[in-house]
């Protein structure tokens, strides 16, 4: 029946050689306009975000399939890694564990001391953040931007704006969240700005990604600014996005040209922006209790005073000190 119908329609059509539909130019015009409209609506109006999310979820199995060979290779090499390497790695880890646990003991003491001090100063309790471990699935495919995709998303309570760090420092920020994965813009991308502080003297600045090579710039600082080669940049926490005190970059080069009032400061990212697989997604700092076992009465008193509504006020308080110290 269907074949009969098909034959009937087929007979009425012109021979296939002449059937070409609209001219290529008409098609070009139509689809170009459609693309332009899509570009405008996607970049300005944000209507397509939910569509992108659902399509990305549909593609997720295919993505896993494409990742399977490299995963298999990694797990195989891991399985066949020799006894010696495992032993030496184990020893190194033990050594590091020992050193870090010693540091941690001091940290506990300092945290308690800090809490007491804050109560004495009638300041707000420190902000606390939670974190989710994630793994980088693949590097972004757009050559003009620096992004990576990680394997944690909406279902793992990732939100846009969360900071992403590795063992050595900040590597970027979550910019797009899909149900099962999310997109992280690296600190070397031109579109990412990050409030930082020089660790040595508390000077605050904003770091921008350079984009072309994997470095970070500190623009808009005067030529006579007090920055030396080898200075470490840490997050200032002033934005409420990044927890304060995470390593961001190290100053590598300072060029002060005569024709511009600003110094050109090139920094090298501290985190392994392009060579780590395991990362930590850190949530926005929130007011919460410091989980030290030896919390005492005064600290609790400080916490009850601090309500979420005071959260905004807590930032200027927190940052008042470094700027005072730096006033000339």
């Amino acid at each position: 029946m269907a074949r009969h119908l098909y034959n009937k329609i087929e007979q009425q059509q012109a021979p296939a050689f002449f059937v070409r539909g609209p001219s290529p130019f008409a098609r070009l015009a139509f689809f170009s306009v459609l693309s332009l409209a899509l570009m405008a609506s996607d970049s300005r109006l944000q209507y397509l975000a939910s569509m992108r999310q659902s399509l990305q979820t549909l593609l997720h199995p295919l993505q896993l399939l494409a990742n399977a060979p490299s995963q298999l290779y990694l797990s195989t090499t891991e399985y066949f890694s020799t006894h010696d390497t495992l032993l030496s790695e184990n020893q190194q880890l033990k050594k590091r564990d020992l050193m870090q646990s010693i540091a941690l003991q001091k940290l506990n003491l300092l945290a308690v001391e800090n809490a007491h001090m804050r109560v004495l100063l009638a300041a707000q309790a420190a902000l606390k953040e939670s974190s989710v471990a994630a793994e980088i699935m693949h590097v972004g495919r757009d050559p003009f931007t620096r992004k990576v995709l990680i394997n944690r998303g909406q279902n793992h309570k990732i939100l846009p704006g969360m900071a992403v760090v590795d063992a050595a420092g900040v590597i970027g920020q979550v910019t797009r969240v899909y149900p099962l994965s999310s997109e992280v813009t690296l600190i070397t991308d031109t579109s990412l700005a990050m409030p930082v502080q020089i660790e040595r003297n508390g000077l605050r600045a904003i770091a921008f990604g350079h984009g072309r090579d994997s470095t970070v710039d500190l623009p808009y600082l005067p030529a006579n600014v007090d920055i030396k080669r080898g200075d470490r940049l840490v997050t200032s926490g002033i934005d409420g996005v990044y927890p304060a005190g995470l390593a961001v970059a190290t100053v590598r080069q300072i060029v002060s040209a005569a024709d511009t009032p600003f110094a050109r400061i090139v920094c090298e990212p501290a985190g392994g922006v392009e060579n780590h697989r395991q990362v930590l997604v850190v949530s926005r700092p929130q007011l919460g209790s410091i989980n030290t076992p030896s919390l005492t009465q005064p600290v609790k008193l400080g916490l009850t005073q601090a309500t979420p509504a005071d959260k905004k006020q807590s930032m200027p308080n927190k940052l008042a000190k470094p700027s005072d110290a730096h006033a000339r």
């Binding site: 459609l34 693309s35 332009l36 409209a37 899509l38 570009m39 996607d42 970049s43 397509l48 992108r52 399509l55 990305q56 593609l59 972004g140 495919r141 757009d142 992004k147 995709l149 797009r176 997109e183």
Partner: peptide
């Protein structure tokens, strides 16, 4: 879609 770019480019 796979490149995570603005649709239409």
């Amino acid at each position: 879609l796979t490149a995570g770019m603005v649709f239409g480019q």
